[in-house]
């Protein structure tokens, strides 16, 4: 099931997930590498990279928003090797599991009010000038 296929009710918590690439290099030529929305870009100004691109690979992120009822979790693939599992804990609280190559890497529990962002990020192995960033935000749509 794609993310957008989940039936949403008014009480559901709606989440957007975006995969972002931070780099000092120029924009790659791949068609699914997009310029990052300036508003989101401004939220990343504490990080040190020169450029940020959104990775919208249709194989994984054809629909970046999904709805969750309280207590329900959803697992979505964001890249070839990485998945996230988001669980709605009630209110604006979520639990996010980061799964790399099928193994649980990290679990984060945090309130995510509308308009705020939770960034899970890390370095790219052997590369000091690149970083991956998963941006999660609660939305109204």
């Amino acid at each position: 099931m794609n993310w957008g296929e989940a039936n949403a009710s008014a009480a559901d918590f709606k989440v957007r997930a975006q995969l972002i690439w931070g780099t000092d290099d120029a924009k790659p030529t791949k068609p699914y590498v997009k310029e990052l929305d300036p508003k989101l870009r401004s939220k990343l100004r504490l990080l040190k990279w020169r450029n940020y691109f959104e990775i919208k690979d249709p194989r994984f992120l054809d629909n970046q928003t999904f709805s969750l009822a309280t207590g329900v979790s959803k697992r979505v693939r964001i890249s070839e090797l990485c998945e996230i599992e988001v669980k709605h804990l009630g209110g604006s609280n979520i639990e996010v599991k980061l799964i790399g190559e099928g193994r649980l890497v990290q679990k984060v529990s945090q309130a995510l009010p509308k308009g705020e962002y939770l960034f899970l990020a890390g370095n790219v192995k052997e590369k000091t000038n690149e970083a991956w960033i998963v941006a999660l935000s609660a939305i109204d749509e």
């Binding site: 939220k43 504490l46 370095n123 192995k125």
Partner: peptide, 19 residues
Amino acid sequence: VITFRSESEGVSFVWVDTR
């Protein structure tokens, strides 16, 4: 693992470094 929160920006970061 490093966590960082900016109330004014409304952002929370969880940074994991594996080097």
